[in-house]
Simulated scan of single mutants.
Amino acid sequence: MELSNFTFKLLFIFLPGIIAVIVISSFKDNDEEKPNMYQFFINSLIYGLFSYIVLYNIYGLINVLFKTQLKMVFLDLLWNDNFSLDYNEVLYAAIIAVALSLIISKLYNSGAIFRFAGKIGISKSTGAFDVWNNIMRKKVQGEEPCWIVVRNKANDTIYEGCLSECSTTHNEAELVLENVKVYKNETAELCYDIDSVYLSFQKDNVVLEFPRLEQTGGETSE
């Protein structure tokens, strides 16, 4: 087998794993470390093989249920010149890889993997790389609206509103609040109401508070 032919087949065989790594990386926060070339290759190999294993079991199940003779050829392609590339097989494995990568991304970004690891005593990690990221992930992904108070003592200003969006990186602290009330920090005097506001600030210049809320109205309980 010529090297170019081998390389061509190898690329297509592990294409599902490459797709999976790209999809998973695209759903990570910007500040999270991206895989280097060595990690990219290893991850592509693992995800690709797992996709083909899933496809192999699907073929086996179809053969049992419908008395067919479906056969996978991807391993034979590496060592046998007489086998031709089955593009449908690669396509099916790629679809499985995309589904697999979406599931992994959901489990990772929701923190489910780390909560499970914590319950069985493997790790205490939350999956977040700092406290800001950890808190904001939980607040934004929560089912209930998150009301927040932003105290900027340097500007003598308080912003109280419902958290709509936020940055998840440690470089920038950005928030978008809705149904906002703006107060003076010293006197708690209401200055004005506004539908929404975008805030960008240094984290050491403000204090964030998450008030206890009544079940209705979004007003803080006394």
Rank of each mutant, 00 (worst) to 15 (best):
Glu32Ala: 09
Ile42Gln: 09
Ser221Val: 14
Lys138His: 00
Ala94Glu: 13
Leu85Met: 09
Cys146Val: 03
Asn205Met: 10
Val180Ala: 13
Lys119Cys: 05
Asn57His: 06
Gln39Arg: 15
Phe50Gln: 11
Lys34Gln: 13
Tyr198Leu: 01
Gln215Lys: 15
Ser25Met: 06
Glu214Phe: 01
Lys138Pro: 00
Asn109Cys: 05
Phe116Val: 05
Leu61Lys: 06
Gly60Glu: 07
Gly60Lys: 13
Ile22Lys: 04
Ile103Asp: 12
Val54Asp: 03
Asn5His: 02
Thr126His: 05
Val21Leu: 12
Leu91Ala: 13
Met37Gln: 00
Glu222Cys: 08
Arg151Ile: 14
Val176Thr: 12
Ile104Phe: 01
Phe83Thr: 05
Gly60Leu: 04
Asp86Phe: 05
Asp130Leu: 09
Ile22Phe: 07
Lys106Met: 13
Ile53Phe: 14
Tyr59Pro: 07
Ser221Leu: 13
Ile158Phe: 06
Tyr192Cys: 01
Val54Met: 04
Asn134Ile: 07
Val54Thr: 02
Leu175Thr: 06
Leu65Lys: 00
Leu78Cys: 02
Tyr56Met: 11
Tyr192Trp: 13
Ser26Glu: 08
Thr216Asn: 09
Gly142Ala: 05
Ile122Ser: 06
Met136Cys: 07
Asp81Asn: 13
Lys71Cys: 02
Ile62Cys: 00
Thr187His: 12
Val182Leu: 11
Glu165Ser: 02
Tyr59Gln: 00
Ile42Pro: 01
Asn155Ala: 15
Lys106Trp: 09
Leu78Pro: 01
Phe116Ser: 04
Gln69Thr: 08
Asn82Gly: 11
